[in-house]
């Protein structure tokens, strides 16, 4: 119990004094996860639109698969990406292992099922008459997709925020692909793991509280969008 209270105090201390190491780690966490979500969204939202709005064989199975992958364990994704990026793997020559770029790629893969799947759900919430109206007014396929995504924009933004939250708080990919290298790939989650293994429970708690704080802000924004 003492650790939790001391952890809160330490968290306040670290934030108020703008502790440089903590600031750096936090900034890096936000940057990597934000980049991952941004790039993933550019691909996944239109992809979700295509999947939902086209008819094709095996559509149902595909959507089921995507939804199953929501809960993919982060270490499993980490392992998968590691095997791809390792020197002995197919993309080893790109030298992306143990780099922030590699972490971005790993997190993109991690959150893509969520982004695609929740986009599909969001689009399903749009009235089918919207589609007919858009088509009858002369929209072609990509214009129809864009229109429906625009109609569902609040739910789609909510999906992006959820993806961001997941990327920010995951540790499996960050650890395996990033390697927790000081001043280079160390982020909040991997720092928490390190501090814990060192027995620095108060610092670990403090970092955790900072991470929770960021998640809280995210979730508050989320409720605003979902409330619409």
């Amino acid at each position: 119990m003492e650790e939790i209270w001391n952890g809160i105090l330490r968290a306040v201390e670290l934030i108020v004094t703008l502790n440089p190491e903590v600031m750096e780690i936090t900034a890096r966490s936000l940057f990597i996860s934000f980049t991952a979500v941004f790039l993933a969204a550019i691909i996944d939202i239109p992809l979700g639109g295509l999947i939902e709005l086209r008819k094709f064989r095996g559509k149902r199975a595909l959507v089921d698969l995507i939804q199953t992958l929501y809960g993919l364990p982060t270490v499993t994704v980490g392992l998968l990406v590691f095997l791809l990026l390792s020197r002995s793997g197919p993309f080893g020559s790109l030298e992306l292992l143990y780099t922030p770029t590699g972490m971005v790629i790993g997190q993109m893969i991690l959150i893509s099922p969520i982004l695609i799947g929740l986009t599909i759900s969001a689009l399903r919430g749009v009235s089918p008459h919207i589609r007919d109206t858009a088509i009858s007014l002369g929209a072609d396929e990509s214009q129809v997709i864009r229109t429906i995504i625009k109609e569902a924009r609040f739910a789609v933004i909510a999906a992006v925020l959820i993806g961001f939250g997941r990327a920010l708080s995951e540790v499996g990919v960050a650890m395996m692909i990033g390697g927790n290298i000081r001043d280079y790939t160390r982020v909040l989650t991997t720092s928490i793991a390190l501090q814990t293994s060192m027995g620095n429970l108060e610092t670990s708690m403090a970092l955790g509280i900072i991470l929770i704080g960021i998640s809280m802000i995210l979730n508050l924004s989320l409720s605003r969008f979902q409330g619409r």
Binding site: S127, H129, T133, E151
Partner: peptide, 8 residues
Amino acid sequence: FQKPVMFK
């Protein structure tokens, strides 16, 4: 349409 829908 008979019951037109508006875009958001």
